[in-house]
Amino acid sequence: MIPGSFEYHRPSSLDDAIGLLSSLGEDALLVAGGHSLIPMMKLRMAMPEHLVDLQDVQSLKSITVDTNQISLGAMVTQAELIASDELHAACPILRETSLQIADPQIRNLGTIGGNVANGDPGNDMPAIMQMLGATYVLAGPQGTREIAARDFYEAAFFTAREDGEILTTIKFDTPTAGHGWAYEKQKRKIGDYATAAAAVVLTVSGGVCETASIGLTNVADTPLWAEEAAGVLVGSALDEATIKTAANAAVAITDPALDGRGPVEFRKHIAGIMVQRAVAKAAQRAQ
């Protein structure tokens, strides 16, 4: 459990960080909170020769909440997401989700940027971002570009991020006031990744579901946006039968692997149960 040796760099500006990444090339990796990367290095599954630490880059640490848009700096920690009352008032699913990630020690260091950039289908925030329709801002030697969270994930640990690019900001439209939300995650214990988890945001008017979006965690080699399932809900009274149909539609797109959490059949089943429970809870919370 001892990593290979590496050089450590600690730039204090985004430009310096980008410069370092370009000059050091392929053998350099960014490190944010380190709570995904360092375990991999200790297992020698990752053996970077250079680590470029982003923690002194102050410009990546802000949370901005507007009536129209929310934007999160990549270096905002999960603990900071939980602590922000302003954020919670506008988009409560972020606190609900963050509280289900790992444990307080890890959340004190783990960042939102690292969580979504990592590309681990077990991470909880990518499905949330897909569900919210978020956009990722990437900065590289050629300038910045934006990419939708729904287009970002290619396979486990493979993303649309190019070597040399840094994820700087995550932004999304502020959810409609009065929306219902829920993140339902089944896990074996504190500190475990999901057996399956479902994220739901929806709006209800006059007893009818007006909009809905569903994201799924750890039931495929990427996070999943369950577009069809959400479509089933829209226009319905969110009755039990409709919720079940939506859950089945969500399960249909899952493709989990067998692991210590259980066989494929079980993990698909749990995905369905999580969707049902998340929708029911969100419906109850919607105003």
Partner: peptide, 11 residues
């Protein structure tokens, strides 16, 4: 310890 179940205070 990700897979070998060691309960925490929560469990």
């Amino acid at each position: 310890l990700m897979d070998f179940f060691l309960p925490t205070a929560v469990e």
